[in-house]
Amino acid sequence: MPQQFIARVVHADPVLPANTIVRLAVPAGVAAAAVPGQFLMLQSGGRDPLLPRPYSIMRATRAAREGGEEGTLDLLVFTGGRGGNHLAEARAGDPFPILGPLGNGYAIDGRMRRALLIAVGHGIAPIIALAESALARGVEVVMLVGAPTAASLLPLPLLPEEAEIIVATADGSRGHHGAVTDLVANYIEWTDAIYAYAPETTYVALRETLRGYRGARAIPPVQAAMERSMACGMGVCLGCVVETTSGLKTVCRDGPIFPLDALVLG
C-alpha cells in the first residue's frame, strides 16, 4: 500500500553530467515494502511545476538506528528536465513530500537460478535494484547495459559486483557496438527469465529475437517495464494507459511491469 510521507535528502551525488543519485531518508516501513520496479512520485509542493514526477527506486536499504530503524531509498535523477532540478540541487536535510512505493514491481520466482537483466538508459536504476535483490536470493545475474555512448553510461562500480555486466553502446565507444538486443540470443538457453527496463523499440527487437529462437528450450518469460507521462500515480486519472492483450491497463497501477507477451507494442 502506498504511503504519503516526507523524505529528507541524505546526500546527492552527481554521477553524470545530467544525472544525480539522490539518497532519501524514508520511513523504514517504506523501504521494507519497496519492490524492485516500483516507483515513487515526488511532489513539487507548489503550483508550478504542478505534477509529481515518477522515479524508479534504484536501491532500498534499512539500517538500525538509535531508537529504531531507518530506511533509505536511492533515486537516479535526470537533471535536464522541468521538475528534476529542484531535487538534484537539494541539500542534505531538505524535505520532499513523496507518494509511494507505487506500481507492481518485478516478480522473482523462488525457483529461479539464472536471470538476464536488460537495462537501457535510465532503466539502469530499477535494474540495479532488481539485480541486488536477485543476487541476495542466490540467483546468478547477467546484466546487459545499453547506452548511446560510453559517456552516458553509469559508472560501472555503481553496479553490483557479483553480477556479470556486458555493455553495448550505439556508437561503439564502449563494449558491443550496437543494441543490447543483439546480445540476447546468447542467453536464451542459459537464463530462466528475462527482465527489462528499456524503450519500446528495444522490446520490439527483443520479441523478434525470441521469436527467431529455434532451439529446444522453452523461450524464457520476459517482464518488461513501460513508461508513460503520469499525473496521479494511483490508477485514477487514466493518463498513462497502455494497450495489452486484455485491454487498456494503467502503467502506474497495473504496471509498470508487464509480461512482454501481454504488451501490444506500436
Binding site: R47, S229, G239
Partner: peptide
Amino acid sequence: MPRIAETPAGMLNAI
C-alpha cells in the same frame, strides 16, 4: 495516447 500534458501551473487532459 498521449492523454495528459503538463502546462504552466496546470495540465491538459484528454482521457
